[in-house]
Design a protein around this nucleic acid. Structure first.
Length: 242
DNA sequence: CTCCAGGTGCTTG
DNA sequence: CAAGCACATGGA
């Protein structure tokens, strides 16, 4: 598949998505129940174990934004759990949480001669002791609560909601507030304007001379960067972290 | 040993 | 509202 102005490495590793493992010259990606392999060769994207349609969906190739770091569209439930884990943590530790949760509650699959685990389906992450064993710390009780609240009806409603409505539903889940709900909106619900404000991005808004609380800063960003503010946020975040 | 990490919840003023 | 702190865990 041909793809220009794109960096698979930057897109996978920039901290928006956690459930991957470097493999051969590319990555094994685990998105919900899907396990597949991707690799970039110049302007070409090679994949195995999945379909063209799923690759296009995952990297949102229908979105005509041309930049090295693309916003990934991940499985919403996996995204919810991942970002509950993200508070006061770091990428490496979040990955550890996700890998362990998958091992304890997910399904074992063989792919390219190795063993992997799919992300647990909704309602499967139902044991507080095991969730704690996944090194999730004080977030364990939030994950358990999320597992109770999130069901098919919740997800269906979430997918049909506007950005604001989705945020309102997400913050009903303990462990999810302004920042995490924005991450879920941007990284799994196609709300491209969502502009997650973490410690790094807040520094950027200060440099822009913007002031106010989370909601006010978020609105400023959307006014300034437009309907794809979230994609700009990823670029800014990537540049700051380099 | 202390500090802090892609925050959030709870308690106070 | 906004400020201050606790919260598990692991790396610097």
């Amino acid at each position: 598949m041909l793809i220009r102005n794109f960096s698979l490495k930057a897109t996978i590793e920039c901290g928006q998505f956690f459930n991957y493992k470097p493999f051969e010259k590319g990555y094994i990606v685990i998105n919900g129940q899907d396990v597949f392999y991707v690799e970039q060769r110049d302007n070409e994207l090679i994949y195995e174990g999945t379909t063209k349609e799923k690759i296009e969906d995952f990297f949102q190739l229908n979105v005509k934004v041309s930049q090295p770091v693309r916003v990934i569209k991940q499985d919403p439930w996996q995204c919810i759990v991942s970002y509950i884990c993200s508070s006061a943590s770091n990428v490496k530790k979040i990955q550890k949480n996700i890998f362990l949760l998958s091992e304890f509650f997910g399904k074992k699959v063989k792919f390219k001669g190795k063993t992997f685990y799919t992300f647990p389906k909704i309602s499967k992450i139902n044991n507080l002791e095991k969730i704690t064993q996944a090194k999730t710390g004080y977030r364990a009780k939030y994950i358990l609560a999320a597992n109770k609240i999130v069901n098919n009806a919740f997800l269906k409603s979430l997918k049909q909601s506007t950005y604001q409505e989705a945020k309102n539903q997400l913050i009903q889940i303990p462990g999810i507030a302004d920042k995490v709900s924005d991450c879920i909106c941007l990284f799994s619900l196609e709300h491209h304007q969502a502009f997650p404000l973490d410690v790094w991005i807040k520094r950027h808004t200060e440099e822009m001379g913007w002031q106010g609380n989370y909601k006010q800063l978020s609105q400023k960003a959307i006014e300034h960067y437009g309907p794809f503010a979230g994609w700009t946020q990823q670029e800014i975040y990537h540049k700051i972290r380099l």
